[in-house]
Simulated assay, not measured.
Amino acid sequence: MTLQRDEGLTTEELTVWRMLQRAQVHITRHLETELLVAHCLPLASYDVLTQLSEAPGRRLRMNDLAGRVLLSRSGLTRLIDRLQRDGLVGREACASDARGLFAVLTDRGAARLAEATPTYLRGIRSEFLDRLGSGEISLIREMLAKLAITDAP
């Protein structure tokens, strides 16, 4: 028995699914490598710094941040520990919730993000955007919106 027969998928459908997975992994690995080589900054760390930089007051509750960067609460806690040791992020208590904590982007973290962003954007350009023709970006956006993958407006 084949997977497509057992689960009702055609060969084409399964192929497209696998292509999507491989494309995402390829682009992510490229970005990770470029950020590590040029800035000693893992992609997950870059993502955390970006989310904090875009938040009001450069801070987010840990639970909200975990959802935005697609990490478990414990995974985010370990990552924030490392970023705090490096002076890129701080923690602040939440005044309205004694158990709540905010992750806060430090000036050093903002500077590190600013240094790494051109590398990140070049990677997106070379591994994704430059491979697409005119009109394909809009088409991809429409397709991803149908899958509810993006929170972008």
Rank of each mutant, 00 (worst) to 15 (best):
T2I: 03
M62K: 15
H39E: 14
T117M: 07
E115P: 01
A66Y: 00
R91H: 08
T117S: 11
M62C: 11
T33R: 15
L14E: 03
M62H: 13
E34P: 00
D6R: 15
S72V: 07
V89G: 03
R91W: 02
P42I: 11
S53K: 12
T2W: 02
R78G: 12
G135K: 05
Q4M: 06
L31G: 05
E34D: 08
G87L: 06
R91Y: 05
G57M: 03
L20M: 13
A55M: 03
R29L: 11
L105A: 08
G90N: 06
R125E: 13
Q84K: 11
S96G: 02
L65M: 07
A38Y: 01
D64V: 11
A152C: 01
E7Q: 06
R112C: 09
G67C: 05
L79I: 04
R131M: 07
Q4C: 09
E54F: 00
I137R: 09
P153S: 09
Q21F: 07
E12G: 13
A23K: 03
D107E: 15
A111I: 06
L129D: 10
Q84C: 03
F128W: 12
D130W: 10
D47V: 11
S134P: 08
A145K: 14
R68G: 05
T10H: 04
S126A: 12
L147A: 14
R82C: 00
Y120D: 02
L49Y: 11
E13L: 09
R59Y: 05
S74I: 07
R122D: 12
R125H: 11
T15K: 12
L60I: 05
E92R: 03
C40F: 10
D86V: 00
L52K: 10
M1L: 05
R82V: 09
R141V: 12
R78M: 10
V104W: 05
D6Y: 08
L144S: 13
S126D: 15
Q84Y: 02
E12V: 15
M19W: 04
A152G: 00
S74D: 12
L52P: 10
E136L: 13
V89T: 08
L20P: 00
R5P: 01
A103I: 10
Q51Y: 01
R73F: 09
A110I: 11
A38G: 00
P42F: 08
R18N: 06
L105M: 10
G100V: 00
L65C: 07
T150S: 15
Y46R: 08
R82F: 00
A103T: 09
L71C: 04
V37T: 13
D97T: 03
R78L: 13
L3V: 13
D6K: 14
G8Q: 04
I137V: 15
S45R: 11
T106Y: 05
L79H: 04
L14R: 02
V69N: 05
A93C: 00
D64E: 13
H26T: 09
R78C: 06
M19D: 09
L139I: 00
V16K: 04
T117N: 06
L113Y: 11
I80D: 01
R91M: 12
M19L: 15
E32Y: 04
A44H: 11
E7A: 07
G133M: 03
T2E: 13
A66G: 02
L83A: 01
I124H: 02
G75P: 10
L113K: 06
R5H: 14
T77L: 08
V48Q: 04
G135A: 06
